[in-house]
Design a protein around this nucleic acid. Structure first.
Lengths: 137, 137
DNA sequence: TTATTCCCTAGAGTTGACTCAAGGTCAAGT
DNA sequence: ACTTGACCTTGAGTCAACTCTAGGGAATAA
């Protein structure tokens, strides 16, 4: 089973523009073409695009993702680099998770803050907090 | 206690350029000035900048953050909007957490994949996986 | 056979969020 | 007095990651 660029765009929720851009940036050296020059995506190409999306979500810029793609072409001699890269990505994502949890903590506090203000009809119910410990702001 | 723009930049790990940019974009209407025109940040300004950073981390664009800042100036009449905004942010962050967990799952799988490949000295140990269920790829 | 709907390339334009350069003010130290 | 360093404004520049336009090709449905 193969896919057109439009099929893949739908599957991965990207635009065809984005996919062509990725190709231009060297992220899709394994995608073959028809006689007429149309891209033909194999299952393995879609899987690799999934990994690319994963690396992007981990905060990796496209330039760095291209290095990884190049390592793939170089075979077993780059196994160590690729391993190291994923280990490094893992700790980057762990850090992001911590940050996101802090963000969540503050947002949940604000939900409570505005819920109680709405109940009271005015934000003034929190006025005294500003003199207090600061914990409840 | 008050702070100069440089103090605040250090405190929040931003550049003074960024802070001036935020000001230009309308995120800092409450910051006062000296006779000479220098910005003077109060504790409450720093706290608001913390909330701004939190909203940014939640994926909110600066334009939308400005709306929130405007609501602050409008007092109790915008309590509902502000509450709704934080509730919406909360679900946005929940979604991000889920996405990040999926990213982590794939990255951890890749760590395992490359660890075993390194142990074997070749990626070929995973060759059969491609014919299998796909679970171990 | 003609219209529609994909697909293609090269290259220009857009967006968001900074980031900096130029030219100037002001207060503190020497 | 003068130099240093931190501050100011306006406006231009940068960067990543798209996003689109123009101009064209091929296949397929009416």
């Amino acid at each position: 089973m193969t896919y057109s660029i439009g099929d893949v765009a739908k599957k991965l929720n990207l635009t065809v523009y984005t996919l062509r851009y990725y190709d231009k940036e060297g992220l899709m050296p394994f995608v073959e073409r028809t006689n007429g020059g149309k891209r033909v995506f194999k299952e393995s190409d879609v899987e690799l695009l999934n990994v690319i999306e994963c690396l992007k979500s981990s905060g990796m810029p496209i330039k760095d993702i291209r290095n990884f793609i190049e390592w793939l072409s170089e075979g077993d001699s780059t196994l160590q680099q690729r391993y190291d890269m994923f280990v490094e990505r893992k700790s980057a994502v762990e850090k992001q998770m911590e940050e996101l949890q802090k963000t969540m903590d503050l947002i949940e506090h604000k939900c409570w803050y505005y819920q109680t203000a709405l109940d009271a009809g005015t934000e003034d119910v929190h006025k005294s907090d500003k003199i207090g410990s600061g914990v409840f702001n």
